[in-house]
Design a protein around this nucleic acid. Structure first.
Lengths: 191, 191
DNA sequence: AAACAAAGGAAACATTTGTTACCTTTGTTT
DNA sequence: AAACAAAGGTAACAAATGTTTCCTTTGTTT
């Protein structure tokens, strides 16, 4: 990355930070582009040079988040069986626990759905690089739907978990999830 | 409902229909309020009387959809075990199959996430009226997270299913889901 | 039937948005 | 070092948004 690109990235980051700061005090809908630019100490022109609109800033922010998440996931030592399930839960829960302030802000502003859209688009192709936390076999279509189910399930747990004012610790959620998974399996098998 | 309220509801419906028709041809972002009002043969004032903005129209639309869905779900004969799982899948898949034109429109316009947000908010409290398709027991917190997982999973399957130009028939998806559920259970038990 | 309340229409309004033109600054290239 | 390309700043612009005022129409109340 050369100096010119660094300048552009820096501006984008400043605008992002400005929007996040404003969102802590004001409703997303009511924040104007002028306000963001002023807070970032940049001109409105620079905003429109960096982003198409307010939503694009959120997109950029979410892109960064997911790249960070998948980086952590890729560093995971290859594992199998139950250990893999636990490791995947650990990474998932701890990552979002670290980012909880930002996520809670997004949830409160009704932007979690927006993040989810980006997650789904980026995650499905990327997940082909990994084995699923539980073993999946079958036709590509079958695998795809099982993936979609898991992905949607995890994301929604994240929504409920961090949507609370005082969310439980990652450890508590982990135990909860393992128990729930086991129960789900039991109930499906005994039916 | 008296005549006055009927008039208001009728206007809302006309504006809704107008927006849907316009969305089939034009990008949601690029549709102006003026355009919607003109298509509905109502004044811009009437639009702002009925809705806060364009997004509110989508909210209204989604609210209607979910009320219809839960009505169907409530008519379901009380059942237990595997039959209940199949019945729930049937209602879910057939309902959305009927509405597939609208859902596909929403997905293409990047509004599925918006619908999802409304679904989640309305569904979690409402689901307390039902037993889950598979048996869930435990603390209220545990039940809540298992519910969230299932709900998120189903919704995401809907996204993947109807996001395609030529989605599979509901019967095919049903078989796929039952198989996937069984597999999930097996893999969790053998780990 | 008369009075009233609420909805819709017309039109004007300030604000915000997104775009453009022109100029200055700054990093890259040769 | 000079020429160049790209980014940022200022300012103006048309278009759209959301709000308001005033007036007409329509259904409800008494």
């Amino acid at each position: 990355m050369n100096g010119k690109q660094r300048m552009v990235e820096q501006s984008k980051q400043w605008l992002c930070d400005a929007l996040i700061n404003l969102m802590a005090q004001e409703n997303f809908q009511d924040i104007s582009i002028t306000e963001i630019a002023q807070t970032a100490e940049l001109s409105r022109k620079t905003f429109y040079h960096s982003f198409k609109n307010k939503e694009a800033v959120i997109n950029y922010l979410c892109d960064q988040l997911f790249d960070q998440y998948f980086e952590q996931l890729l560093q995971q030592k290859p594992q199998v069986g139950e250990m893999m399930l636990k490791t995947t839960f650990d990474i998932f829960l701890n990552f979002w626990w670290q980012k909880r302030d930002l996520i809670q802000l997004l949830i409160r502003q009704g932007l979690f759905d927006h993040m989810n859209e980006i997650w789904q688009q980026k995650a499905i192709p990327r997940y082909q690089q990994f084995a699923a936390p539980w073993h999946v076999h079958g036709t590509p279509t079958q695998v795809n739907y099982v993936m979609a189910f898991q992905l949607g399930g995890f994301t929604n747990i994240l929504r409920v978990w961090l949507g609370q004012d005082h969310p439980e610790s990652p450890e508590q959620i982990k135990d909860l999830m393992l128990l729930a998974a086991q129960q789900l399996a039991d109930s499906l098998n005994t039916n």
